[in-house]
Amino acid sequence: MPRLLLVEDNEMNRQMIVGHLKWLGYEVFLAADGHQAVELAADLQPDLILMDMGLPLLNGWDATAQIKADPVLATIPIIALTAYAMSDDYYRSMAAGCDAFETKPIDFEHLAATMERLLAGSR
């Protein structure tokens, strides 16, 4: 069962996303801000990270850059999950080190396909 780290500061979004991910058969760990994301990524070394970009304390772009700068964690695929849907936001997410970009509201069918593609490539 793949282990995912979901980084999301909004409780309602967290519950909805976790429900979908567990239904799909994933083991899900949670972080509510960028600092927790960096710490948990190092501790858990999950198979994939779903990263909200608009986080408190340390935003998702900076958290992603920190995770990707660590040689041990650099190969973990990170998907940006964000309400920031402009092309500049896409490029900013890719520049930070994200491997894919998904906008909110989430299209769970598309997200599941993206996750499977990234997980298959990292195995």
Rank of each mutant, 00 (worst) to 15 (best):
E8H: 07
D9H: 10
E11I: 08
R14C: 05
M16F: 14
I17P: 09
I17D: 05
V18N: 01
V18C: 08
V18P: 01
H20E: 15
L21A: 04
K22Y: 00
K22D: 03
K22G: 00
W23F: 15
W23N: 13
Y26A: 06
E27V: 10
V28W: 11
L30P: 04
L30F: 07
A32S: 10
D33W: 02
D33M: 07
G34V: 01
H35C: 07
H35G: 09
V38F: 10
L40F: 12
A41F: 11
A42I: 00
D43W: 02
L44Q: 12
L44N: 02
L44T: 01
Q45T: 11
P46F: 05
D47L: 02
L48A: 00
I49A: 02
L50A: 13
L50R: 12
M53H: 04
M53I: 14
G54W: 00
L55A: 04
L58Q: 08
N59P: 03
N59C: 05
N59D: 15
N59I: 04
G60D: 03
A69W: 00
D70S: 11
P71V: 01
P71R: 07
V72C: 02
V72M: 10
L73H: 12
A74K: 15
A74F: 13
A74S: 15
T75P: 01
I76G: 02
I78L: 08
I79H: 08
A80S: 12
L81P: 03
L81S: 01
T82Q: 05
A83W: 09
A83I: 01
Y84R: 14
Y84A: 13
S87F: 01
S87C: 00
S87H: 03
D89L: 05
Y90W: 06
Y91M: 10
S93G: 15
M94H: 02
G97P: 13
C98D: 12
T103I: 07
K104F: 00
P105D: 02
D107C: 09
D107I: 11
E109G: 07
H110Q: 15
H110T: 12
H110W: 06
L111E: 08
L111D: 09
L111W: 07
A112P: 00
A120K: 15
A120P: 00
